[in-house]
């Protein structure tokens, strides 16, 4: 959901896939966070998550892949003439953070498998087994968030962020939960965990169907209501919020 006070169309995070496939032997998931102070960052974030999930490249630091994606972004933003300030803003390109998760199955019936994750910046992955937080990636605590995380730039030649791409691998088993989150909610998650709370219980109980009649009747909080409350109480920074919840059944 977008920042409080902004329209839905101004949401600059992205996630993919919209609807996970069932029965595949390899599945990819990603969330990305387009930088607020740049323009056309939502499009860049969307292009990044789709490219990651298409499996079109070996790793995020693959410059050949990045060049292709940058060309795609530039051709999109150049579609129509822009006023002078938009032209000048484009000179510095745009930026995004990204975290991607690839789950591998040995067979369709496997109850165990491997995972591989890649990230740049402060979008985070958490792996939960029961009530044990097994993996935190790439950041490890709420203290690790800064005002200037490394990001992937859409500008040709601006490859300084590429060296900051990190990866991790691990194993999953049936019943595990994975969460991919952009920074504001990831920071909330870390802080709650550092207070010995179980933030995953809050997220598990949320429903993202805002006006779903079952949600309304059950008294469950919708995702939006919960984020609004957390922001009002000062528990979460007012930023775009994305949580991708993956449950391995």
């Amino acid at each position: 959901m977008p920042k409080a006070g902004n329209a839905d169309s101004e949401y600059e995070d992205a996630y993919w896939p919209r609807h996970p496939l069932h029965g595949e032997t390899c599945q990819r998931f990603a969330v990305a966070d387009g930088a607020t102070e740049t323009s056309f960052s939502g499009i860049w974030a969307k292009q990044l998550v789709r490219a990651y999930c298409s499996g079109a490249f070996d790793n995020l630091a693959d410059l050949e892949w990045l060049s292709k994606l940058r060309r795609k972004w530039w051709s999109f933003v150049r579609k129509k003439p822009l006023p002078w300030y938009s032209e000048q803003k484009l000179e510095s390109g745009t930026f995004a953070a990204l975290v991607g998760l690839t789950l591998g199955w040995k067979s369709a019936e496997s109850e165990k498998g491997d995972w591989h994750a890649e990230a740049i910046g402060d979008s985070c992955l958490f792996q939960l087994r029961g009530s044990h937080l097994l993996t935190k990636f790439p950041l490890l605590s709420s203290q690790d968030f800064t005002n200037s995380p490394a990001l992937l730039s859409s500008k040709p030649g601006n490859d300084s962020g590429v060296s900051a791409v990190v990866s991790a691998t691990g194993e999953w088993q049936s019943g595990d939960h994975f969460y991919l989150m952009t920074d504001a909610v990831a920071a909330w998650f870390f802080r709650a965990h550092e207070r010995n709370e179980a933030p995953w219980e809050v997220i598990r109980d949320l429903d993202n169907e805002r006006d779903h009649p079952v949600v309304a009747q059950s008294g469950m909080k919708s995702f939006r209501e919960w984020v609004d409350t957390a922001r009002t109480q000062g528990l979460m920074r007012n930023d775009d919020v994305t949580i991708y919840r993956i449950e391995i059944v």
Binding site: E10, V77, Y85, S86, Q88, K89
Partner: peptide, 14 residues
């Protein structure tokens, strides 16, 4: 002023 305008520029305008 130019910097401030560019800082506030987004795809839909300023």
């Amino acid at each position: 002023l130019q910097t401030l305008v560019i800082r506030c520029a987004k795809e839909e305008g300023v």
